[in-house]
Nucleic acid binder design. Sequence first.
RNA 1: GUGGCCGUAGCUCAGUCCGGUAGAGCCCCGCGUUGUGGUCGCGGUUGUCGCGGGUUCGAAUCCCGUCGGUCACCCCA
Length: 432
Amino acid sequence: MAKPLFQAPKGTRDIFAPESGRQSALISAFADAATSAGYGQIITPMFEDLGVFKRLGEATDVVTKEMYDFETRDGKTVALRPELTASVVRAFVQHRPGVPWKAWYEGPQFRYERPQAGRYRQFTQVGVEALGTDDPHIDVEVIALAWRFYETLGLRHVRLLLNSLGDPECRPAYFAALTDYLTGRRGELTEQSQATLDINPLRVLDSKREPDQAVIAEAPLMVDHLTDEAGAHFTAVCEGLQALGIPYEISPRLVRGLDYYVKTTFEFAGDSLSAAQNALGGGGRYDGLAEQLGGPPTPGIGFALGIERILMACDAEGVFPGPDQQPQVFVIDVTGGEEALVVTDLLRQGGIRVDRAWDGRNMRSQMKVADRSGAALAVLIGEDELADGVVTVRDLRGDAGQVRIDRASLVDIITTRLEDPAADSVPTGEPS
RNA sequence: GUGGCCGUAGCUCAGUCCGGUAGAGCCCCGCGUUGUGGUCGCGGUUGUCGCGGGUUCGAAUCCCGUCGGUCACCCCA
């Protein structure tokens, strides 16, 4: 294939209908779910001061290796957002809405990575953030919102993985214990894990490399080192989920990729996808983030769900086909096209999805286009109809045949027939 | 950043090992039916064989380089 002069940048895609409509519908479904739970939409800029994202943790790949950062003409350094929690918390700190403050969002995010299945340089997430309360029941609300959303889409093979990463009081002690343990068995770890150990020992627990597993299996666990307060919070979250009948698995080695998480952390694994892209979404509590961004100490929790991954899971499970976007009616006019212009407009005003053919092609050609369009009904206008002031309505999908109707009742009859193809018609079989 | 695989028509691909001057199916267009689609039949349009260089009488095919795509590792959504 000859290469086009330009193509979409690496890791980005052009999304055509009907897939684009399916994506919009997914976001719309999420908007409904979030709105009904009392979350208001927030729209933040696609880029931020680089410093906003540096707070995510100097040890994270997202910050150190994957940032789309650049200098602007006036010498400031900005970055395309690699995630949205930092942007939303920055907006919270800047504008100080009353708490508790609950917001939802959707939009593209950017990470400079090598693309692969289910991973793009520009990808889209939906999510929520709730700031200003550390009531464990809001953790439950947030998790439940995501869980019910997956259910709404029809996904059944999703697992909720739950963990607590402790709080600033118990974390240092655990951190030290884990570091001691891993350092003691350093020689058994893979080269990559040894490097990770020097940067963030917690992340070693997340290694999927086989040689590391024996060491990880015996590593001390955060859940065994929680303070009374952090433990009580975790217990309350678990009990809340049980009260709602939402199944979860305690996953004591679940570590998230961003350093700001404390206490409750969770991930949703799509079991219909391979491990490389089965992370359908995740989130957790980030009680220190607002303060790091220059605001007052404010607890917060949220999640982000990747819509590309969710749609892959929907494909794998055969659910969420997306909305009907095909025309319902196709207008055929072999008298020159003036009639099609008017009739198409009339039907559209009646709230019907309508398309038509162009270039004055013959009826055979126009019928082919009508058939391919997916429309259920064709409206035919030839010289006879024009002379009699009527149109012919033809069923393209069933055996309801065709009928000539008065143009004045066109919208009513079409609307009725779209609901019941056999209504108002006398089957005429094949055209005479 | 590392590695595997792949770049031939609008799409999916064969042809590459063993060099001889480019094919199939689908799609699209027309006709059979100058007022009727889906099935069928007939006919037709479409290629810098990713790009550059080398070897050769001759390269889609062999060699070198390069770009792109894809998958995986890593990490993550």
